[in-house]
Structures are given as C-alpha cells and as structure tokens.
Simulated assay, not measured.
Amino acid sequence: MNPKPPKLPESVLVVIHTPALEVLLIRRADAVGHVDHWQSVTGSKDTPGEDFHDTAVREVFEETGIACGPGSALADGLCDWDIENIYEIYPQWRHRYAPGVVHNTEHLFSLQVPAGTEVRLSPREHTAYRWLPYLAAAEACFSPSNAEAILMLPRFIEDISPTSGWAAAA
C-alpha cells in the first residue's frame, strides 16, 4: 500500500447558509481533545491544478451530501468571495503536509441553500451538524478565520443575484 501523499497547503472554506442567515456548522471527527470543534466545510485541493471552485463543489458534497456543482439546483448559490486567508496550520495537523509546511492559503466561498436542506455527513470526517444564526455560528467556531468569514456573510449575501432564486430579502 502506498503512503498517502501530503496534503496541499491550499484549501477552501465554504460557509453554507440559508437566506435567513442560518449557518451550517459541522463537528470534526478527528478533533481529539476538542469536543466542540465546530466549523464550516473546509478542504484542500486534491491536485495543484484543481480550481478552487471545483474544490469547493467537491468538499461540500463529500462533507454534507449537498450537490452544488454545474447543473445542480444549487449551482447558482455557490459564491466565490475572491478572498484568501493565510494562516498557520495547527501543530496537531502539520503531519498531513510535506515537511516544513506550516502555512495554508484558504480561499473563501459561501453557498446559499433553502431552509430545510438535507445534510448527510461523512462519518469519517464529521460527527454532528447544526444550523445556527450567523452570530451564534461565528461564536461557536473553533477557527478564528472561519468565525471571521461567518461574520462577513451579511455583506456577501447582499451581492447574491436575485436571479439565483435564493437571494435574501433586502
């Protein structure tokens, strides 16, 4: 069996929310010692050439079962914020990366879904989910960059086109 290749230090963060700004948080299965490690969907590129949009679509589906790729009912709800965060990788997860890699570049997205959207977690990655008002969701996040992204959500919701069918009321 070949060893798993190191993770790429380029990832996406996808804040999934309803028009009423209820935010989906998922609890990591591997957060040893951090029972309350709640976060949005995150994940690294599979290959250096993978587009961030494709990474976001893949990770949302893998982690929540929500389809938002081209041709899906929610494809227009995926919004690229064109913002990147660079942060230090937590020491407990550095072993997943190539030796000497200590920083990750995270590209931000949001995905607007209708209230009541079904969530199917990948049990090897997450153990629970919950929907919270965006301020409570930001407070519940383990990651400061995730909390900051959630707090920026109202600004980006205003930019969602009404033609997407999911735009929040002004």
Rank of each mutant, 00 (worst) to 15 (best):
N104F: 12
A149M: 14
T55K: 05
V119S: 05
E63G: 04
R96D: 14
A167D: 09
Y97Q: 10
E148N: 11
T42S: 04
I86V: 15
P3R: 00
R27D: 01
D159C: 07
E62K: 14
T47P: 09
E158S: 14
F109H: 03
D159A: 02
F156D: 04
I89T: 02
L151V: 00
A128E: 15
R124P: 03
H95Q: 13
D30H: 02
L74T: 02
V60T: 14
P91I: 07
W131V: 00
P70H: 05
V15Q: 13
S11G: 13
I89Q: 11
I89W: 07
S110Y: 00
S164L: 07
R155T: 03
I66W: 06
L135I: 03
E22C: 00
A73Q: 04
M1K: 04
T163P: 04
W38R: 11
P3S: 09
P3F: 06
G100A: 13
T18G: 00
Q112P: 01
L78V: 02
P99D: 15
Y134N: 04
T18I: 02
D76W: 10
A75L: 04
V35D: 11
A167I: 05
E63N: 15
R96I: 05
P3N: 01
S44G: 10
T47Q: 08
I89F: 02
G65S: 07
E22Q: 15
M1T: 08
E148V: 15
D82E: 14
A140M: 13
V57G: 12
A167S: 10
T117F: 03
L153S: 02
K45L: 04
E139H: 10
L13N: 14
W38T: 07
P48H: 09
T18R: 12
Y87C: 15
L78D: 02
H53D: 10
G49Q: 13
D80A: 11
Q92W: 05
P48C: 06
D46R: 12
P9D: 08
G100Q: 12
I157S: 14
D159E: 13
A128F: 06
L8A: 05
A20Y: 08
T117R: 14
P6H: 07
P70M: 01
V14F: 07
V15I: 13
T163R: 08
G33K: 00
V14I: 12
V113P: 05
G65P: 12
C141Y: 07
V102T: 14
C68G: 01
T117S: 10
V113Y: 00
F109R: 11
R28K: 12
V119M: 01
E88M: 08
D82R: 15
H34S: 08
E148I: 12
V119C: 10
V102N: 12
P91C: 11
G43F: 03
Q39L: 10
D80T: 06
A115V: 03
H17Q: 00
Y129N: 04
A115W: 08
R58L: 13
H126E: 06
W166D: 00
M152A: 12
S72Q: 01
